[in-house]
Computed example of a mutant assay.
Amino acid sequence: MGNHPNVEVFLRNHESLAPKRYRYSDVKKMTNSFKDKLGEGGYGGVYKGKMLDGQMVAVKVLSETKGNGEEFINEVASISKTSHVNIVTLLGFCYEGPKRALIYEFMANGSLEKFIYNGNPSTNGRLGWETLYNIAIGIARGLEYLHRGCNTRIVHFDIKPHNILLNEDFCPKVSDFGLAKLCTKKESMISMFDARGTPGYIAPEVFYRSLGGVSYKSDVYSYGVMVLEMVGGRKNIDVGVDRISEIYFPHWIYNHLELDELGLQGLMSEEDRVNARKMIIVSLWCIQTKPSDRPPMCRVLDMLEGSLQSLPIPPKPFLFSPARSMKDSSTTSEL
Rank of each mutant, 00 (worst) to 15 (best):
V7M: 04
L11M: 14
S16F: 07
K20I: 14
D26S: 11
K29A: 13
T31S: 01
N32Y: 04
N32W: 09
F34P: 05
G41V: 14
G42A: 14
Y47Q: 12
Y47D: 13
K48W: 05
V57W: 00
V61E: 10
V61K: 13
V61C: 15
N68T: 15
E71S: 09
I73D: 00
T89Q: 10
L90S: 05
C94W: 12
R100L: 08
L102A: 08
E105L: 08
F106G: 08
F115R: 03
F115M: 08
N118Y: 08
P121W: 08
S122P: 01
S122W: 03
S122R: 07
R126I: 15
L127C: 14
E130A: 11
Y133F: 15
I137G: 07
I137C: 12
A140V: 00
R141V: 04
R148P: 04
G149I: 03
T152W: 00
F157V: 02
I159N: 00
N163A: 04
L166P: 13
E168D: 14
D169M: 14
L179H: 05
K181I: 15
L182R: 10
P199N: 15
Y208M: 06
S215F: 03
Y216D: 05
Y216S: 07
D219P: 02
Y221D: 01
S222W: 01
R234N: 08
I237V: 15
R243P: 02
R243S: 08
S245F: 07
E246T: 15
I247M: 15
H256F: 14
H256V: 08
H256S: 13
L259E: 06
E261R: 12
E270S: 13
D272Q: 05
N275L: 07
M279F: 03
V282Q: 02
V282I: 03
W285G: 09
W285Y: 12
T289W: 03
S292L: 10
V300H: 04
L301S: 05
S310D: 07
S321K: 09
M326E: 05
K327N: 12
D328A: 13
S330R: 08
E334H: 07
L335C: 09
